[in-house]
Structure formats: structure tokens, C-alpha cells
Design a binder for these strands. Sequence first.
DNA 1: CCGGGTAGTAACTATACTGGTTACAACGGT
DNA 2: ACCGTTGTAACCAGTATAGTTACTACCCGG
Lengths: 140, 140
Amino acid sequence: MKQISTRFSMAVHTLSLIDMCPLECTGDFIAASVNTNPVVIRRIMGMLKKAGLIEVRAGVGGAYLLKEPGQITLLDIYRAVHAADENQLFGIHDNSNIACQVGRNIEQVLQQELRDAQNAMEQRLARTTLDQLNKQLAEI
Amino acid sequence: MKQISTRFSMAVHTLSLIDMCPLECTGDFIAASVNTNPVVIRRIMGMLKKAGLIEVRAGVGGAYLLKEPGQITLLDIYRAVHAADENQLFGIHDNSNIACQVGRNIEQVLQQELRDAQNAMEQRLARTTLDQLNKQLAEI
DNA sequence: CCGGGTAGTAACTATACTGGTTACAACGGT
DNA sequence: ACCGTTGTAACCAGTATAGTTACTACCCGG
């Protein structure tokens, strides 16, 4: 497979910066730290804004968090940038042949198993907050 | 993101069938149950073969498991079909600006967090065997 | 030993997501 | 009013996916 889009890691990077220095955080400034094109960052900021994580100061530039950094988890960010389509990490083939016992039931059974696996991952993401992350960044 | 390829779920489907009726399991037969093109199945069987999960009977057709179904986990199958690139589910942007504290350390910190999340998912996959899955399929 | 059915691939296609890029209109403080 | 910024739209190249056609290699039964 392709990997989960780097949009997610760039979004985390972006929020870290906004937490540390909201006023400086124009799209260009963040793009310089992430080392990418400002438009890519603006697109991500748009998603973070739509998810209610940040407020962007149109015209003047900069952005600030709408929640405490201790209340923003990696899972929130993951969801905000649509890291997984329809919140469903695993794709499952459909229209299996119902004349076959396996074909008839595989989708339902797999759906549950894979949902569990996805949940395990997401719960791990939910355990880490932006706050904790920024503390780790400072400690190195 | 795009979801994890349906190649994974098709591979599980394929192995379920092989476990139940190895002799019947030609590419065409499996393709009819999965409802896709036989070549797609043959490609997947090639990957399962390369991973040492099955042996395919060239010429005559059919395939059989090389391990007990209780010894084949969803994680084995997931890995066999290269569901994630380089065994790394999350893509992380690189070449961040090292002049910035966040840019300098984000990759290392995120790497660890995301690896943990990935592991949580994989360990859940590792807990389910083909055997258990087939029992579930039969119980419905 | 040969014919029929099968595996194993190569090659091509359409579709879709990604990350980057240019361009431009709307906005807002100084 | 100016200038830097945001918010988008449009486009591009690269790549993964899933399906399809076509061909060779292989094995068994007759």
C-alpha cells in the first residue's frame, strides 16, 4: 500500500508551531519549517480550521489553537486531515458471491476484525496530546 | 487517504477458501467467489506463495496451506500482501528545517508515537488466526 | 505424447490520491 | 491605499490500484 498521507505528520508539525508561536505562524513561516510549499500548509490549515482545532487570522496572518494543547490528541488531528477515507482504514472488497459460504459472510466477519484493529491504533493515537508532544520536542 | 488496499481482504478471502477446499481452489474458482478477475487472484496467490503461506499446484490447479490455519494470523496475511509500504503505515514528511526546534525534532518524536500506534493495530491483527476466522464464517 | 485446463507474467488501461506549483481574488491592519 | 496574508482554483507529475487481454510454461489424463 501507499502509506498514510504525510499530510497527517505535516498537520501535527503545524499545530506544534502554532502552539509555540501563534503570531509568527503564517503559511509561509510554517512552510519554511516543514520544508514544503505554503499552499500545502494553507490547505492543511483549512482542514484544521474546519475541524475546529484552530482559528486563522485572515489578512494579517497567524493562527491560534481553539482548544488547550492538552485537549488536542493525535487522533483529533488524524481525523481532521481525513487521514483515512470515511474513517475506515481498511478497504474491503464487496459484491462477493453469495452462493458461497465464504463469499456470503466474509465481509461481515472481516469488517468487525479490521474495525477492532483500527480502533486499537486510534486509541493509541488518542492517548497522546499535542501538549505531551511539545514537551517531548523540547526535551531532546 | 486512500484506504488500505482491498488486496488484503481478498487475500484473507482466498486463504479461507483454500483452507476449506484446497483442490477446488483454482484462480478462476476463487475469483468467482471474490467476484473479480482471475488474474487479480493469481497475483495475490503469488504473494501468498512468496510469503510461504501456500503452495500452488502449477498446471493442475488448486493450492494448499503450508501452515496450520491456527498458525496463520491476519498479520501474516497483511504482511504477505505488502499492505503497508516498507512495513511503515504512516508516512512522515522529511527534510524539515533543522534551524527550527520543531523541525529539528518532530520526525524523531512522531516516528516513535506513530510506530506505537501501528504496533497496536498489528498486534490486534496478530491475535486473529485463519482458523478462528473460518469458525466465525461457519457460525453465521 | 498431445490436448485441455491451469499457473505465472507482462503489458496496458482507467481511476484516484498525493504533493507540489502558479495564479488570483478577498481580506485586514498600518 | 498599500502590502502581506489567506483562501481557492487549476493544473501537473508521480504513483498505487484493480481490472483486463494476451501469451508462455506447466501438469495431468487419455
